[in-house]
Amino acid sequence: MADLWLQFLLTIDATLRVATPLILCAMAGIFSEKSGVIDISLEGKMLMSAFAAAAVAALTSSALVGLITAIGVSILLGLLHGLASITMRGNQVISGLAINILASGLTVTVGIAMFQQGGQTPNLARVERFRPIELPLAEHLGGVPFVGSIYREVVSGHNILVWIALTAVLFTAFILTRTRFGLRLRAVGEKPEALDSAGVSVTRTRYLALIIAGVLCGMAGAYLSTAHGSGFVREMTAGKGYIALAAMIFGKWQPRGALLACLLFGFLEAVASRLQGVEVPLIGEAPVDLILALPYLLTVILLAGFVGKAMPPRAIGEPYLKER
C-alpha cells in the first residue's frame, strides 16, 4: 500500500515536470492567440530556444545566460512571425509553419557547425543546468504520514522554471482580466477595428502580445535542454509545442483551463512512461501508445463540440486591414 502511494506521488511529481514546458507554451499561446495571431510556431520557438539555451550554457558555463539567450532568440522568432503576419499581413499558419521548419533545420545545422556532435550540444555540467531546489526540511518532514510524503516527493525538488511556469498561469490570468493591457489584448483578438477606432494601435498591441509569448516560449525551451535534460538533442521538442497548443484549445483559451489541460496531458505522459513494459492484469502489456494518443483524441473530441463549446477569439487568423 505504502509502495503504491509512493508510486502515485512519483507520478504526480513527474506530471509536474513533464507539464512545465507545456504550461509555459500554452500561456504563450494564450497571449498570442487572444491577440488574434495563430501561433503554431510555439514548437519552433521552443526548439530554437532549447538549442540556444544549451549552446550558450555550454559556452559560458552559465545556465542563466543560456536562459536569457533562449528568451532573446524566442522573442526574435516571435517578431519574425509578427513581421510576416501582422506587418506584411501574410497567412499566420504558413508563417508559423515556416518558423517550425526553419528551427528544425537551423538547430541541427548550427549545432553540427559548433559542436561537431551530430547536432547535439555537449552534455551540460551541474553549473550549466537549473538544479532542483530542495525545500527546507524536506527530508525531516518526509516521515510525517501523508502530508510529509507529499511535501518531500511532489512539492520539493523542482527547479526554478517549474515554479515560474506555475506563476506564469497566475500572471497570465491577472494580465488578461485585471489590467488595461489585458482588456486591449482581448479586444484586439475579438474585434480589432473596435480597438483601432478607440485610438489604440492594433499593430502595437499584437506585437506586444507576441513578445510576451516569446519570453514564455523561450523559458519553455531552456527548461527542456538545461533543466529537464542536460543538453540539446535534435528535435527534442518532439511535438510538445503542438500538444501545448492543443491544451490551450482544450482549455478554451483560458489560463486555468489550459493549466488543467496541460496537467492532464502531462499526467497521461507520466503514466505512460511509468507503465512502459508493465504487465497489467487482464489486458496484458500496458497500452502505452494509446495513453500517449489520448491528448490528441481528447482535443479532437473537444473541437468537434462534444465537451461544451470552444470559442476561439473571433478575429483569430485575420490580418488587420483598415477597410477602404
Binding site: 482581448r186 479586444a187 475579438e190 473596435a194 477606432s197 473571433r314
Partner: peptide
Amino acid sequence: MLVPNFSVLENVMLGHE
C-alpha cells in the same frame, strides 16, 4: 465598433481605461 463579448462598461472604457 464594439467588442461583442465585452460588457457595455468594458466597451466604453476600451482605450480610455
